[in-house]
Simulated assay, not measured.
Amino acid sequence: MLKNETLVEVGKDNSVGLYKKDDKFTINYQDLNTANLNTFRSFSFQNLNKDVSGLYELIANGFIDAPESNIVLELPNDIIELHFEKNYGTPTVQFIQYINKNKKYVGKSQLLNKKQIDKIFGKSNGKSAMYEKPATMNNVNPNHQQMNTASTVAPVTPTPVNNNKDKKPRR
């Protein structure tokens, strides 16, 4: 699939991941609301007003002080609710997605704790720099830029070509 090559993984834990393409971010998750556990759903949003950081802050604050009702976020295509609940005494959050803003079609992620959210949002691997400061990204972490270009360029130049350098051409 060509589509996936342009997505860069920011972070992933278990069945939930955050991916970036240009300035669009996608959260991909295994839908626990379906009988078929192989159903994966996703919702996307632009990182316009530091929305990725904003979402992370909303979740982080919800862990500290759980809101009385779900936090509702309206995206261009979906409605997302952040559902907080204590799971064995640990604060957790669950993404609830109303697909195409239709209350009949609901996707639900697993319950995620703070450590998992940090992993998904790239806080534990330093990749959160990808959305924190788009303008200075090259200065902050030049290696990530290199890695991204390398991974898209690598398949174009197959390695066997370089191995033939020392051999004499066959006739």
Rank of each mutant, 00 (worst) to 15 (best):
M1Q: 10
E5G: 02
L7R: 08
V8D: 04
N14W: 12
N14P: 10
S15H: 02
V16C: 07
G17Y: 00
Y19A: 03
Y19E: 06
K20A: 04
K21G: 08
D22V: 10
D23V: 09
D23K: 10
T26V: 11
I27W: 01
I27F: 00
N28F: 03
N28M: 09
N28V: 03
D31E: 08
A35N: 12
A35K: 15
N36T: 14
N38R: 15
F40D: 08
F40E: 09
F45I: 00
Q46W: 08
N47F: 00
N47G: 01
L48R: 13
N49S: 13
K50A: 07
V52I: 07
I59H: 04
G62M: 05
F63T: 10
D65M: 11
P67E: 02
E68C: 11
S69A: 09
S69W: 01
I71G: 03
P76D: 05
P76Q: 11
D78K: 00
I79W: 04
I79R: 11
I79L: 04
E81Y: 07
E81P: 04
H83E: 15
H83T: 14
K86Q: 05
N87G: 06
Y88Q: 14
T90N: 06
P91E: 07
Q97R: 07
Q97G: 07
Y98W: 05
N100F: 03
N102K: 07
K104D: 06
Y105T: 13
V106R: 05
G107L: 01
K108A: 05
Q110L: 06
L112V: 01
N113T: 02
Q116N: 02
D118Q: 06
D118E: 04
N125P: 02
A129Y: 11
M130Q: 08
M130Y: 01
E132C: 08
P134H: 11
T136D: 08
N138Q: 07
N139M: 06
N141Y: 07
N141S: 11
H144M: 14
N148F: 13
A150E: 14
A150I: 15
V153P: 02
P155N: 05
P158M: 11
T159L: 07
P160F: 11
V161F: 15
V161K: 14
N164F: 15
K165G: 14
K165D: 01
D166L: 10
D166W: 04
K167F: 06
R170W: 11
R170Q: 06
